[in-house]
Design a binder for these strands. Structure first.
Lengths: 224, 224
DNA sequence: CGCACTCTGTTACAAAACGTTACACTTTAA
DNA sequence: TTAAAGTGTAACGTTTTGTAACAGAGTGCG
């Protein structure tokens, strides 16, 4: 999951699953904290997330970290480049995963439909990352956090009576490293949104969206 | 071209051209200022840059702009998502382009070798964009500009007697929008690098790298 | 059970980085 | 030649970060 510019097809497309195909391996179940792969590993499998949440990260030698993406249901992770993984990937919320052999993407032997579906997933990935560029490069802290919450709401928000509610399985540091901010700034910004009554923070992992329109406005550059 | 973490294979890989294949269209020659496509256009062709430089951009409604990438020889541009372009693309330096039908990527009918090569280009694109995330999200102004010059040097730098020399066909505003800075900051940072004798600015489009190691150091977080 | 300890998150204040504004200068195009 | 666009530089302002202190939740241990 990246922070993309809102669009109605986003969810439908990305969760359109590679379902009607012959899997080459049974689904795998992984617990919180487990690692799927590390940067530099040879790619054997791609994975489509069926349930749970993954985290993809890159590290700089001096310890700085960038969270590249969160893997939500429907997302495909593990695209190879030169046959290798270029991120670490671990499990944030215990996940069910559908593995696909790397060859299914790269040569498509056997199943052209699956091959095409994985290719389309890669192409969508490129487009989503382009959107995320705009966010990392050109948005303010408030816009970033507001965008993040909006996208998460659109993608996995739940109805909670009058309002909608978003669960944040990642810690503040993960959000910061995803949005290019510090944990303090993420924390301060959430407080600011709470004080403007745009969100409520029910508990540390649960945000209630009180004014979705205001949030969306902030994410696109309206003044607070 | 993205600002990726330096690696010896970068150039060899990306300029490894889709050469030994049957082109489905003759090469095209485009002049500075010409547009290849706009955001929202249906994708008919992908293009591999043979010579010249392209610029891929995205716009926000309020006018903020992100330069997504520069297209240098070897790069492939125009990957579709949902069949559409998601950036604008225009010509910075008059370019020779090899067009490939979109179907060559998406269905591969006719030429499996070409299909595989285009797919690999897309996968490399994903990896390069991940590196660029790190840069946009986690690097300071000096690190960004130093990284930019280092990558450009590695990719298209020319020998100039004792030193190496880089041509910047894009204006300061383009560099700024690529790195997530303002033109002033780009300008100040270049001045700063010039005053520390790490680069010399021969003319507005030509930078001489006096101390490549120092530049690389700065790009990875050493103090100035 | 209570206690110290760690980890995460929050807040306040100071500091740094970067952006904004303004203006001079150069180059390019009309 | 003049206007327009692009660039360089400086002073100033804003945003974001860094630092530090503290609160609360969870954990291990006596």
């Amino acid at each position: 999951m990246y922070v993309t510019i809102p669009s109605d097809h986003t969810m439908a497309e990305s969760t359109a699953i590679l379902a009607a195909t012959t899997p080459s391996a049974p689904q795998a179940q992984l617990k919180r904290g487990a690692y799927l792969f590390f940067e530099g590993d040879d790619v054997e499998w791609l994975y489509q997330v069926k349930s749970g949440v993954l985290r993809l990260t890159r590290l700089l030698e001096d310890g700085r970290r960038q969270v590249i993406a969160f893997g939500y249901p429907g997302d495909v992770v593990g695209f190879p480049s030169d046959g290798k993984h270029h991120t670490d990937c671990d499990v944030l919320v215990s996940a069910r995963l559908q593995p696909f052999r790397r060859a299914m993407l790269e040569s498509g032997e056997g199943d052209p439909v699956l091959h095409a579906a994985l290719l389309q997933a890669a192409l969508r990935e490129i487009s989503a990352m382009q959107d995320h560029f705009m966010m990392l490069g050109r948005k303010s802290a408030v816009e970033k956090v507001a965008s993040f919450l909006s996208v998460l709401d659109e993608r996995v928000g739940q109805d909670q009576g009058q309002y909608r509610q978003v669960t944040l399985p990642m810690c503040r540091g993960d959000i910061a490293d995803f949005l290019g901010l510090t944990t303090e700034t993420v924390s301060r910004t959430l407080t600011q949104l709470r004080k403007s009554k745009i969100i409520a923070i029910e508990n540390i992992q649960t945000v209630v969206i009180l004014r979705p329109t205001a949030l969306l406005g902030l994410s696109m550059g309206d003044r607070g």
